[in-house]
């Protein structure tokens, strides 16, 4: 069996390895596909659907779809980017995302995607849902106002930490992150060194006493859009 798989994305020929997903192969080739729930060290879930691309004309999540020889992938189309923008808009209005006092602001992946897509304001009306905060743990707090239900903490706690501190409960608009304890986060075996405390793309799970250490202007996405580290790989070649 060949150790190379060739496919085309947006007219660019890419060579990947067997077993790679579209997203992984494109990352290596320096082509950025927007994504939110995907974390490079965790099993992809395909839950946010931001990375949806057209594979031979059919929509597929690039983070879960393996590459195959000769596939034609479209990503940077007007329609797909419009869909992505809509997903970002909806995530903003479905939660309570107060960037101005959020500890993650400037390093937040949701916010960074808003910036990358040049979103000045969501096009939908805000929900202002009532969500719960749990700050009982000595080192970590969870603020569900900012949660986008990406599932990274669930996955990290289960597979990396081997604990299962977080889990989804409820369906539809009632869906939320629950914790594996009678009541409070302090009653779980979550530790500050756990992967689960480290992977939140937004400000929902924050380590205490780490906020606002980087001045405005030097934060991760202040000057460069999210994905530019990947895109720079291609420019160098």
């Amino acid at each position: 069996m060949s150790n190379e798989i060739n496919f085309v994305i947006d007219g660019v020929e890419v060579t990947g390895k067997p077993g790679q997903t579209i997203l992984e192969a494109c990352d290596e080739a320096g082509i950025y596909i927007p994504r939110l729930c995907r974390h490079p060290e965790l099993t992809p879930r395909g839950s946010c659907r931001l990375c949806t691309v057209l594979v031979n004309g059919r929509p597929q999540a690039a983070c879960t779809q393996p590459i195959t020889e000769g596939m034609i992938v479209e990503s940077e189309t007007e329609e797909l980017n419009e869909n992505r923008r809509n997903i970002i808009d909806m995530l903003f209005v479905e939660g309570n995302h107060f960037c101005m006092f959020c500890e993650r602001s400037g390093n937040c992946e949701l916010q960074a995607l808003g910036y990358r897509f040049g979103i000045l304001a969501p096009k939908y009306d805000y929900f202002y849902p009532k969500r719960e905060i749990d700050a009982t743990h000595p080192d970590i707090f969870i603020d569900r106002n900012r949660c986008i239900l990406c599932g990274r903490c669930v996955e990290a706690s289960r597979t990396v930490d081997g604990k299962g501190v977080f889990e989804f409960v409820g369906r539809g608009p009632e869906r939320k992150i629950a914790i594996n304890a009678e009541q409070f986060l302090k009653d779980t075996n979550l530790k500050i060194t756990d992967k689960a405390a480290d992977v939140c793309p937004v400000g929902a799970i924050i380590k205490k006493r780490t906020a606002f250490t980087t001045p405005i202007g030097k934060r991760k996405y202040d000057k460069k859009p999210i994905g530019s580290d990947i895109e720079e790989k291609r420019k160098k070649d």
Partner: peptide
Amino acid sequence: LPYEIIKYD
């Protein structure tokens, strides 16, 4: 508008 001046905070 350039990237650097669109901020939500």
